[in-house]
Design a protein around this nucleic acid. Structure first.
Lengths: 100, 100
DNA sequence: TCATTATATCGACGTTTTCCGATATGTCAA
DNA sequence: TTGACATATCGGAAAACGTCGATATAATGA
């Protein structure tokens, strides 16, 4: 768990926004054909749409969040679904709490 | 309390190092003529020395930490003493814990 | 007042980050 | 297989960051 990578990932308004939205996917995203937004996650297109940035940027930002261990990805057919990794986030915040 | 500024301040190895040292000043810094390292803080020269960077950089990094609310500064004579603002840090970490 | 010392600020330059458009890859359906 | 769609990756321009040396400011003491 590289703390600096986590802080870097969190040093960006758009990425914090994504994490925020993913806290309550059904509140922020349209329901998806036979996919449980909460269990599986939200696809890149929907995040791109809300972000008001290009698909390229959204994809890269999701990658950064994933590398930092804050979200996880699941590929299903054409779609990649991203969701928060609450376990990991709990470990990270408790680590920050303890060591900062 | 600007969260992003905090994360940016923490996205740097040297600045994290400074925060770490300031947790236990007497362990990492020489005693200072009639100044309580713990109560008043550590002066810029001593931090510069340990950082292995220039005085300019140390001063700027301390400024960044201060603007993020992580440390506070006290000027006494020629010296500026920096110490962790534990109150603020507690608020910040608890805020991260709660909102991340 | 002047020299000295501690700190802050300025200007610069290389590196990293931000964000984009273009294109490649993967997947499905016809 | 081909076309269409979702996502990832590449290459780049502009902004921000990391870090320095030089210089300005503040405080002290001779």
């Amino acid at each position: 768990m590289d703390t600096i990578e986590v802080f870097k990932a969190l040093s960006n308004e758009a990425r914090l926004q994504i994490l925020e939205w993913l806290k309550d996917p059904t509140a922020y995203f349209r329901p998806q054909e036979g996919v449980d937004l909460v269990e599986i996650g939200v696809c890149v297109s929907q995040i791109t749409e809300k972000l008001n940035m290009t698909q390229s940027t959204a994809s890269q930002y999701l990658s950064i969040l994933q590398r930092a261990g804050l979200v996880s990805a699941t590929r299903l057919g054409k779609w990649t679904y991203y969701k928060r990794d609450e376990e990991a986030i709990k470990k990270i915040t408790s680590n920050i709490q303890q060591n900062l």
